[in-house]
C-alpha cells in the first residue's frame, strides 16, 4: 500500500488546525509512530534471508520487488523486549537507501494536532530514548514518535 507523499499531507494540514499525520504500529506493548511522509510503504510479511556476521539488530535482507533491502529488527535496534514475532515491514527512507523496520502490528493512521506533540521525557522505561523524537499523550496511552534520521543512520 502506497502512502500519500509529503505535499498532500501538508496541504491537508494547512486547511484546518495545524496537525500532522502519523503511521502507527505496535511493538513490545508500545504504540510507535512515524510521520506519514517518512514512510515509503507498508508490507505484510516478506521472506527474510539472514545475513551472517551482520549487526545483531539486522534481521537480514528482503526482496522488495527486485530491490534488496535491509530488514531492521526495530525492537533490537531501540533496546526493546519484543513479545511476539515481528512480521510487518514499515519501509522508510524516501531519499537514499530504504530500510525495512520489522514491527508486530500496524495501527491506524492518526492525525495529531501539532500542539499535542511534546518533547520526550528523559527516560522511557524499556527503550533507548535516543531514537525517540517526540511523544504525544493519547487518551489511553503514550504515542512514541520515532526519529527517522536516527533510525536511518548506522
Amino acid at each position: 500500500m502506497s502512502l500519500p507523499a509529503k505535499q498532500e499531507g501538508e496541504k491537508n494540514l494547512s486547511l484546518a488546525e495545524d496537525t500532522r499525520l502519523f503511521i502507527t504500529f505496535w511493538l513490545g506493548g508500545f504504540l510507535f509512530a512515524l510521520p506519514v511522509e517518512e514512510v515509503v510503504e507498508i508490507n505484510r510479511s516478506l521472506d527474510i534471508t539472514p545475513v551472517p556476521q551482520a549487526p545483531t539488530y539486522v534481521s537480514g535482507i528482503i526482496n522488495l520487488r527486485g530491490q534488496i533491502l535491509t530488514a531492521i529488527d526495530l525492537a533490537q535496534r531501540i533496546g526493546l523486549e519484543r513479545e511476539n514475532e515481528a512480521h510487518h515491514n514499515v519501509i522508510i527512507g524516501r531519499d537514499g537507501e530504504p530500510l525495512s523496520l520489522l514491527v508486530e502490528q500496524i495501527g491506524d493512521v492518526l492525525e495529531i494536532p501539532l500542539s499535542d506533540i511534546e518533547d520526550p521525557p528523559d527516560v522511557i522505561e524499556g527503550l533507548d530514548i535516543q531514537f525517540v523524537k517526540n511523544v504525544s499523550r493519547l487518551p489511553d496511552r503514550l504515542l512514541v514518535i520515532l526519529d527517522v534520521q536516527k533510525l536511518l543512520a548506522i
Binding site: T49, V51, Q53, P55, E97
Partner: peptide, 19 residues
C-alpha cells in the same frame, strides 16, 4: 548482482546478494 545496504559494509565476505 545487487548491492547490500550500508549496514553490511563491514562484512567483507559478501560481495552482494541476488534474487
Amino acid at each position: 548482482v545487487k548491492p547490500l545496504g550500508k549496514h553490511f559494509k563491514d562484512i567483507s565476505i559478501f560481495a552482494g546478494a541476488t534474487i
